[in-house]
């Protein structure tokens, strides 16, 4: 139990270090950026929707509903900008890294997932899934040796592929590599 409590204390310390980087309330910069993006998307949607035809009030065209959504998004974008205008700029505490540990892990994971999707198109499901699993266990710092992680990745993907093929009767694409096999 004492060991459990000590572990809890250490966990608390690690947790508190992470909490500072975990602000849910968006910063002024985030609000500005989001406001601009949302307004941009709203304008693009409205212009595209107009191209589909807005119709008349008694006979709304295919573009009418998307145009209404675009109008709503535009208002949301303006509200985000207004919120940014009244928000106080946040100061980053001294000695804190520019990119916090948790964010760095998410960025790495994002890169892994992006490459994974590209890999699914090019080298197919099996190979890219094994490599992605290996990369994910690395990013997450799994308590296994490289050989252990590699074995886990191969076994996992083979089991998943086998089960999914059996359940769905679907052949998973082999990508560009599959063409030559």
């Amino acid at each position: 139990m004492a060991h459990h409590d000590t572990a809890h204390e250490q966990g608390t310390e690690a947790m508190l270090n992470d909490l500072s980087e975990d602000a849910s309330a968006p910063s002024r910069t985030t609000l500005l950026l989001m406001g601009a993006v949302v307004i941009g998307v709203a304008v693009a949607v409205f212009v595209t929707a107009r191209g589909y035809g807005l119709g008349e009030l008694q006979h709304p065209g295919p573009g009418s509903f998307p145009a209404l959504i675009a109008a709503g998004m535009g208002i949301m974008g303006v509200l985000l900008l207004a919120q940014a205008a009244v928000e106080n700029p946040r100061r980053r505490p001294a000695n804190t890294p520019l990119i916090a540990a948790g964010t760095r892990r998410v960025l790495f994971m994002g890169a892994v997932l992006t490459v994974y999707v590209v890999g699914l198109y090019t080298v197919g499901f099996t190979i890219s899934s094994v490599l992605a699993t290996l990369a994910m266990t690395h990013v997450l710092d799994a308590k296994l040796s490289w050989l252990g992680r590699a074995t886990y990745s191969v076994v996992l993907v083979l089991i998943v592929e086998l089960v999914m093929t059996a359940v769905f009767s679907v052949r998973f694409p082999g990508g560009l590599v599959g063409i030559f096999l």
């Binding site: 499901f125 992605a132 994910m136 799994a142 990745s153 998943v160 999914m164 359940v167 769905f168 679907v170």
Partner: peptide
């Protein structure tokens, strides 16, 4: 069960599942 091993398993399952459901890349 360590989440470090669980995460990749769930992700791979999600990818296979999403493709299997529609067959659309």
């Amino acid at each position: 069960v360590p989440t470090q091993l669980l995460f990749p398993a769930v992700m791979i399952l999600a990818a296979y599942g999403a493709y299997a459901a529609s067959g659309i890349m």
